[in-house]
């Protein structure tokens, strides 16, 4: 499972970075979303991968997963969501004001 998990993360980060380097606002937002997912999953496994275990520490249950990374991921998801919303609005405004969706404001560049 570790191999599957890490390769998924790797693919997501690679796609995210590639999209962000396209230097257009819409691919950037998609890339940022992918990178955000990958980072959240990465944060999640910093408490190690375990299956079918509760995230609650109790006297009856000897084994448990670390609940803290789950709380961290929750925070990170909320913040990441707000940031994506903000960057979408900013991208819309930029395309209105600059007349292009290129992040540097180049108009003639069609690549």
């Amino acid at each position: 499972m570790e191999l599957l998990f890490t390769s998924c993360l790797g693919v997501m980060i690679a796609c995210g970075v590639y999209l962000m380097l396209r230097a257009r606002t819409f691919p950037f937002v998609l890339g940022l979303t992918l990178l955000g997912y990958a980072v959240n999953m990465f944060l999640f496994v910093s408490g190690r991968l375990k299956t079918n275990l509760p995230a609650v520490v109790s006297p009856e249950q000897l084994q448990y997963t670390d609940p803290l990374p789950q709380a961290l991921v929750l925070t990170a998801i909320v913040i990441g969501f707000a940031m994506v919303a903000f960057v979408v609005v900013l991208a819309l405004r930029a395309s209105g004001e600059l007349g292009t969706d290129h992040v540097d404001g180049h108009k003639e560049n069609n690549s």
Binding site: M20, V39, S46, L72, M83
Partner: peptide, 21 residues
């Protein structure tokens, strides 16, 4: 400014994740 700092925040979480792990 916004885009660079958004990427920076993701990298921050990776660093924190490594250290917490």
């Amino acid at each position: 400014y916004v885009m660079l700092n958004l990427v920076g925040s993701s990298v921050f979480l990776i660093g924190v994740g490594v250290l917490y792990g």
